[in-house]
Amino acid sequence: MNVLVCIPCLMTGGTEIQTLNLVEALITAGHEVTTVCYFEHSTNMVERYKQTGSNVCLLSPEGKRPVGITNTVLLLYKGLHRVLREVKPDVVHVQYMAPGAIPIIILRLLGIKRIVATAHTAADIYPSLRLLHFVSRHILTAFQCITERAEKSFFGNSQMYKAEMKLTRHGNHFTIYNNLPPYISIANKEQRIGKVVTIGVVSRLEPIKGMDLVVPAFSKIHAMNPNTHLLVVGDGSLRPLMEQQKNNAELNEVVKFAGVQPQEALQTYYDSIDVLLMPSRSEGFGLTAIEGMARGCVVVAANTGGLPEVVSDGKVGLLHEPESSDSLAEKAIRLVDDRELLMTMKQNAIDYVARFSFAHYSELINNLYSKL
C-alpha cells in the first residue's frame, strides 16, 4: 500500500522516534511511505526518516508554525491538498498531537476515507473529548492508543490489539504499545552492582518531567547511603536550578551533569545507571523507562500517565507518589538498601521488556494494515 504518515514536528522527541519506528515497520513490510511534517523540523531527524526509506514533505520549509488558527488551517489545507495529489495514498496515518483533529478533518474533506490516528498522550490534555469522539465514530477507521490507561481516558474502556481482531468501518479503538528504538538493545542477564550505586535520569530537564524533584530527592538518598552518585543526562530550562540545588546541598563531588547526548550514546549511559528516576508530571508512555529496563536499570517512576502500565510496580520497578521528592527518595532508598531486591528487579526488567520489542510491534502494525 501507499501510506502517508502525518506529523506536526520532526524534532528529537519520543513521538518522533516512535513514528520513525512506525515508518520503518511499514517499509520493512513492503509499503511505500511518505512522511509529511507540518511545522518545526530538524535536519538530523528529517535525514533519519529519509535513511529509513521514507520520502519526506515539509509543509513549512523554514520550519515555522503559522500565527493564528486561520493561517494554520490554510497552511494545512493547501499543503495536504498538494501532497495528496502527488502521493495518492491508500491510507493516511495521523499522529494525533497539536493541532488536534484539524488535519484529520481536512483529510476527510479532501476525500481520504481510510485514516488511522495514533494518540501519544492520555486524554487529560484535551479540554473536551466531544470532537475526538465524533472524529473517531464518523471519520477514523482506527484510533490507536499507546497504553490501555490512555485508551480508557479517551473512551472509558480499552483492549489490546490482537491479530484476530475484526475491524468495523469506523470507530475502532485499541492499544498497541510503543517499542524499543533501534539504538537500544536488550542486555544479557548478567547484571552487576558496584560498591557505589548510581542513581540517574535521562531526560529533558523540564518541569513536566519533574526534574526539579531529582536533586532534593538525591540529597535524602545520599544522606542515608553515602555510596551513591547521581548522573544527569540531558539538558533544559531547569538545569541552572538543579545545579544550584546541587551546590546548596554540597553535593558537587557526587552529582555529574553529562548534558545532551546523541541517541546512539544513550545505551552506554543506561549501562552505568542502577536506579533510573522518572518523576514525570505527565507521561503518555515512558520511552525512557523501557530503554532503561532493557539495559537493566530499575525504574522509580511517578504514578502518573502511562508509567504505571509500563513500569510494573514491585516487579521491575517502583512507583512513587507524584510531585513528592520524599516519596521518590523513599522508593530509591528501599532499592539501595536492599541489594538483593535491586539485583532481582534488574533481572526482571530485562525479561519484562521483551514485550516492547520492535519485532512484536511491527507484527501488530502490519497485521492492522493488512485489514485496511
Rank of each mutant, 00 (worst) to 15 (best):
L4T: 03
C6E: 03
P8C: 09
L10R: 06
G14C: 11
T15I: 14
E16C: 01
I17S: 08
T28K: 11
G30C: 05
H31K: 06
E40K: 00
S42D: 13
S42A: 08
M45T: 14
L58Q: 10
L59T: 01
S60C: 07
G63S: 08
K64Y: 00
V67L: 04
V67D: 10
I69D: 15
N71F: 07
T72Y: 02
L74V: 10
L76C: 11
L84S: 09
E86I: 07
K88R: 14
H93F: 09
V94L: 08
Y96R: 14
Y96N: 13
I102N: 13
I105F: 13
K113L: 02
I115E: 11
A122P: 13
R130C: 02
F134R: 00
A142V: 12
R149W: 01
E151G: 11
F154S: 13
N157G: 08
N157L: 07
Y161V: 14
L167T: 11
Y177F: 15
N179R: 15
L180I: 12
V197C: 12
T198S: 13
R204G: 07
V215I: 15
P216Q: 05
S219D: 15
I221H: 07
H222Y: 06
N225A: 11
P226N: 05
L238E: 12
R239H: 10
P240K: 10
K246V: 14
L251I: 01
E253D: 13
A265Y: 09
Y270S: 03
R281L: 04
G286T: 00
G292K: 15
M293I: 02
V300M: 05
N303G: 02
G306S: 07
K315C: 05
G317Q: 03
G317C: 04
G317D: 03
L318E: 04
L319M: 06
H320Q: 11
E321L: 02
S325D: 14
A329M: 06
E330P: 07
L341R: 05
V353D: 15
F356L: 05
A359S: 14
S362K: 13
L368C: 03
L368M: 14
K371H: 01
